[in-house]
């Protein structure tokens, strides 16, 4: 096993995911199997290879920028329309001072 149950719970906390005990067990099994497949990468020589984060094409320096023109933002009512809880034009959430 490459992973322990403790690792799974630690990663779940990093990802803000509440997992049941049963899910932790399954996740341990699945992730371990998947990470086993990933080990093939250790054997490949990547000395001197630059990491490829994005597919890039030849383009001028400013090609990714759009014209700097004023646009109407999403109006407040529309922005709040999908909020689970809102009030006074704001998103409402539980108290933030306790974890």
């Amino acid at each position: 096993m490459r992973l322990t149950e403790k690792d799974v719970r630690y990663v779940a906390a990093l990802a803000n995911l509440d997992l049941t005990d049963e899910e932790v067990g399954r996740m341990l099994h699945d992730l371990d199997g998947i990470l086993g497949q990933m080990e093939v990468l250790a054997g490949i020589d990547t000395e001197g290879v630059s990491p490829m984060a994005q597919v890039l094409f030849g383009a001028d320096d400013y090609s990714t920028l759009r014209a700097d023109v004023e646009r109407t933002p999403l109006d407040n009512e529309l922005a709040l329309q999908n909020a689970p809880v809102s009030g006074n034009g704001c998103f409402k959430v539980p108290r933030v001072i306790e974890r």
């Binding site: 803000n16 995911l17 509440d18 922005a79 999908n82 909020a83 689970p84 809880v85 998103f91 959430v93 539980p94 108290r95 933030v96 306790e98 974890r99």
Partner: peptide, 18 residues
Amino acid sequence: VRYGFRSADSTTLSGMYR
């Protein structure tokens, strides 16, 4: 917060996320 499902019984913000 802005959209999507929200779990019913969370008393703190981080609990709500999880």
